[in-house]
Design a protein around this nucleic acid. Structure first.
Lengths: 195, 195
DNA sequence: ACAATAAGTTGACCTAAGTCAAATGTACTT
DNA sequence: AAGTACATTTGACTTAGGTCAACTTATTGT
């Protein structure tokens, strides 16, 4: 299956609508394949996030670096997710985030201006956008609640049950940062949970 | 200014589009004014959030209650905000949240099915929805970052600079819970910051 | 295959924030 | 206006999780 077929399937499945041949040609004309090797940056702090990427293969982390050089992972992204700092992408302001490939990464990328065109002309695309933003609203609300009202251990258990594959796929220090923990603390939690 | 005029102004301003007379009639036919007194619930845990409300006057808090009876404020909402548990509202599942009026509250409310109609027939309404979900994505991302990488004191300073009116308007224990702090800790932070 | 670099573990210690309890202050209700 | 129910403050104490450092185990690049 080609990269574009992955994208088409995704749009059709999420939106519940079919893409016409014209729709597909429009998408193929304006999404550009891009490959990044592990450790390469999709976005660097201070730059404007000019592209949004649809992940066909691989994974990435979105993180900030605070004054003390402490890295803070906000998001982990895998296949069939969109990759961008949406604040920077929508508002065209410099980003406070870095987005780095955790594994070799293949994306299909496009610009803000192009996305506006897709939304105007492709019904399945705008239906998709609505559903994604609903899902996003829901997911972030859950994560907020978890951050505030769960203990470190509960957040880890929660991750295990919701995204078990994350644990296999990402290094433990990345998972720790994603959970808002130091690597040492996560190491200890794991040790205890084997009893 | 009538309640509906507040809503019309809001939609037009956010969307950057004008509402036709027909649009306005459609909205007036399907948004129902509703008043709640302070302490009354807009939504109770376990119920499906059947209505979305546009706040014309007053304020509300969205919170959960954990096993220990500990309340956890996730959102504070004031005039010109939408009030709902979007997860429950979109998916029609029972809500894990409570929404309670903090001050006497006037909303214009409508149902999921009606909102779908508005989105279909009123261009300004769907433009508004897109912009709101963009803003929402951005705001939640910021709040997530604050929750993970700021200290209690920094989160309080942040609130002061972003929403100074919240401090005047809401009781301190509500603010504390919103910041993910015990009331005692917030009291101490405030004491220290007067030096 | 072998340094070299990074990731994970473990122990000792520290600190921010939570908990409990008592005292004071404020605001609804009748 | 008095009385009851909340809010806030303060102090004493506890605890979850962070920090620093030493060590072990994996990855990575040449």
């Amino acid at each position: 299956m080609s990269n574009f077929e992955v994208l088409f399937d995704y749009i059709q499945e999420i939106s519940g609508k079919l893409l016409s041949e014209d729709d597909k040609h429009l998408l193929m004309a304006h999404f550009k394949p891009k490959k990044l090797r592990k450790r390469q940056y999709f976005l660097q702090e201070g730059d404007v996030c000019k592209y949004i990427g649809f992940i066909v293969k691989g994974s990435a982390r979105t993180f900030t670096v605070d004054e003390k050089g402490h890295e803070n992972v906000l998001k982990l992204s895998v296949e069939n997710w969109w990759l961008a700092d949406f604040e920077s992408f929508y508002l065209l302001t410099p980003s406070r985030f870095n987005i780095e490939a955790l594994e070799d990464l293949e994306v299909l990328q496009s610009t803000n201006a192009q996305i506006e065109e897709f939304l105007k002309h492709i019904p399945a695309f705008s239906a998709m956008q609505n559903i994604i933003s609903q899902n996003n609203t829901i997911a972030t609300q859950k994560r907020m609640q978890a951050a505030f009202s769960y203990t470190a251990e509960e957040r880890y258990e929660d991750l295990i049950s919701n995204y078990p594959h994350f644990l296999k796929r990402f290094p433990q220090n990345v998972i720790a940062s994603y959970l808002g923990l130091s690597p040492e603390t996560l190491s200890r939690i794991r040790k205890n949970s084997f009893k």
